[in-house]
């Protein structure tokens, strides 16, 4: 017996999200929230001399671009409660202030498993982040866990 779902869900492609502009100030607040002090993320002068020639966002900033309605409304749900179970992120290129970032996503996998908290249905969504020049910034596998 396996989890019941419409097979058409697999590889279902979501509408691409509206571009989100990366504001320098948002990167600063992200750094502050994580206690980030590396000057290549926080200090324009120091960052100019660094490997990226200017401020970039910490790599993990890439996972924060999923807030758009187009994303969450499309994630298939099983049961009442959804939790973030894990991520697999490939950081392709640095995200810079002024970038306009879009997210294209599709359903990669749906499977069942049992754990400490009971029966769970896992939904894996694969997203690709691109900037305004159509350059890939990151690939992200979001693993969502659904509980009854």
């Amino acid at each position: 017996m396996a989890v019941n779902y419409d097979p058409a869900l697999i590889n279902k492609v979501f509408e691409i999200t509206e571009p989100v502009e990366v504001k320098a100030e948002k990167i600063q607040r992200y750094c502050a929230a994580l206690g980030e002090t590396n000057p290549i993320y926080t200090d324009e002068e120091a960052a100019k001399k660094g490997p990226y020639g200017g401020i970039v966002a910490p790599p993990s900033f890439a996972v924060t671009f999923r807030n758009g309605r187009h994303f969450f409304e499309n994630v298939p749900r099983f049961g009442m409660r959804g939790f973030d179970a894990g991520k697999d992120v490939e950081f392709v290129a640095p995200i810079r202030p002024g970038d306009n970032v879009t997210l294209s996503s599709h359903v990669k996998e749906i499977y069942e498993k049992t754990g400490r908290t009971g029966m769970m249905v896992f939904v894996v969504i694969r997203s690709t982040l691109k900037n305004q020049n159509d350059e890939v910034l990151a690939h992200i596998d979001h693993r969502f866990m659904n509980r009854p």
């Binding site: 790599p59 939790f83 894990g86 697999d88 992120v89 950081f91």
Partner: peptide, 9 residues
């Protein structure tokens, strides 16, 4: 460059 990070919660 950190090229990949996988996490399990």
């Amino acid at each position: 460059w950190l090229t990949r990070m996988s996490t399990t919660y």
